[in-house]
Design a binder for these strands. Structure first.
Lengths: 143, 143
DNA sequence: GTTAATGCAAATGTTTTGCAGTATA
DNA sequence: TATACTGCAAAACATTTGCATTAAC
């Protein structure tokens, strides 16, 4: 079985946590990576089935949970409908959702640190994550 | 039927949009208002049934959708489990979620405007909403 | 009296779980 | 070979919908 499809780092993470590197996992991670980051479970399933028609939806869900647990992907809830998953990209980034077409754009903005400081001091919280979400209309949908 | 339980503004909004002011709607809005803002559909249902045991869950869902449409409540997805609803409080405010106990704290922070400007210019988006979400551990859960 | 809103039950859609068979290490 | 992972089917769960009845206007 080919293992080249799954990046070394992911492979290492799976391996070092005693998780087996299966065909299905390699494929799912590959699709998530290529998918631009914002796929829901069903979309991931559809795409994966084009390559592995026997793959089941439960496998998709089980592995998304595993990837989440291992920190390989992040889960977002932009709309009321579905969860979206994206491969983690290290740096803190935020999201911009177009209400017209549903497109999600990532952006970085150095707001985290100052905000962290202020809020942390104000509420006694230990802050572990910050995310800014904005919604609006993209240039195309404004027409 | 008593209508005093439902604030004048909400009553006006319902009335002016040709929606009937029912017992159930008055009760639901009342509970949402008292609930500190962060209730999910089922919690709202449970509390409402203490006062109106015959009230049905579909009524809760139907009215939450109506309230959303009229702009009376906001919907948030903090965790993977449920949606949370809160009555709108006019001013832009953000949320802080404790990963230990699930507590949600609101805070205001003047980050919106500058961020709006910068991002709007950068992506050509027309920004209609901004929300900052932070997760962490509250002072009690840190012990 | 009209018509919108409700309660109930059934339908939908997504996510989870049990289990026997399969593939990885 | 041992056991973790998979596929399948069924279960669980939240949310929505159809329809006859009830209540607001």
């Amino acid at each position: 079985m080919k293992k080249t499809k799954i990046k070394r780092t992911s492979w290492q993470i799976l391996n070092s946590s005693k998780q087996r590197v299966t065909n299905q996992r390699a494929l799912l991670l590959d699709i998530l990576r290529k998918g631009g980051g914002h796929l829901d479970a069903n979309e991931l399933y559809e795409r994966a089935r084009r390559k592995q028609p026997r793959l089941s939806l439960s496998t998709v869900y089980r592995n998304l949970q595993l990837f989440k647990k291992l920190g390989l992907v992040d889960e977002h809830h932009f709309t009321e409908e579905h969860f979206h998953y994206e491969v983690k990209s290290g740096g803190e980034h935020h999201h911009l959702l177009c209400l017209g077409c549903g497109k999600v754009i990532e952006f970085t903005y150095p707001v985290g640190y100052q905000l962290r400081e202020d809020i942390s001091r104000g509420c006694g919280f230990e802050i572990t994550g910050v995310e800014v979400r904005m919604v609006g209309l993209c240039s195309e949908c404004r027409k």
